[in-house]
Design a protein around this nucleic acid. Structure first.
Lengths: 154, 154
DNA sequence: ATATATTTTCTAATTATATAAGCGATTAAA
DNA sequence: TTTAATCGCTTATATAATTAGAAAATATAT
């Protein structure tokens, strides 16, 4: 279980994982030791899954983002598992969610340009077995991209 | 511009932002100084937008994720800007994309449970002006959630 | 209520890392 | 060539992470 202090630590680290234990301690009115121990506990118990950096995708040439809704033809367990395995291997697919609704899966896809997207859809995705309908929605702008847990829950 | 070494650094830090310059230097066959300077450059030039942690959302009680497609009634600039501003204030909305296709926006929403989602849709979202159709897709499972730039682009 | 555990935090010391300075080597351009 | 400019190396210093042991606070049982 995490208490209020743990959540504040998570909030601060989410905002800036480079913050030192000293700075966090100062913010919370503690010394470094308890902060250090709490962080280790949060890591150990899996609250903190990963330390990472956010990279500006456009600066490394990934100019195009799209969401791709996919429905399968066959919904037997074996077919579903096969699809979910195949998806792991497609680098362009950043995220993949199994959803309820009109389609079975929602994919978030990142590629350099429309050409690459074309190749992704027609060469890679269409090559998988069991693909039914595919519908693409192109991202024109990212209005909000926090990718973080809102403070109100921390 | 980033060269091959810079990209490798980005790749390593994306995987584990806690990696020390010493470790990175060892991986790349360099000493700490050039690695340190390159990292500072990557920060300065905005390739690295943020150091952050990934938090296990379910461990902090956010059991439900949904995608919410929204279309607006009025598409004049002023109305669009108003909507995009309003969205920033809704904590449950983690991401918001302006998309082309059947709907205008795709929202990624995180809430504790179905009750909270219900309140979000009927109290918060529906309270905004200019909302046309809304269609929710609930996430049943996260098949892939890399949230990262694929290695092939780094 | 009191004594006993348990947990949490503190201070202080140690170890490791980040950061900076100065020098040499390589590369590119004049 | 010769001059810049870039890049990486070694060494030194400042800063941070981590550990150890004692004190304080909290919870538990008698």
């Amino acid at each position: 279980m995490v208490d209020k202090i743990d959540k504040q630590i998570l909030r601060l680290l989410q905002l800036d994982a480079k913050k030192t234990t000293k700075e966090i301690a100062a913010d919370l009115g503690l010394t470094t030791t308890p902060v250090h121990e709490r962080i280790k506990k949060l890591e150990r118990e899996g609250y903190i899954q990963q330390y990472s950096i956010r990279i500006d995708r456009k600066k490394v040439g990934l100019m195009m983002m799209a969401f791709c809704s996919v429905s399968l033809k066959n919904h037997e367990r074996a077919f579903i598992e096969k699809f979910e395995q195949d998806i792991q291997l497609l680098d362009e697919v950043i995220d993949c969610y199994h959803i309820g609704g009109m389609f079975d899966y929602l994919l978030k896809v990142l590629v350099p340009d429309m050409d690459a997207y074309q190749r992704f859809i027609s060469k890679k995705l269409a090559d998988l077995d069991n693909i039914g309908n595919v519908q693409s929605s192109f991202v024109m702008s990212e209005i909000k991209h926090s990718a973080q847990i809102p403070d109100q829950f921390l």
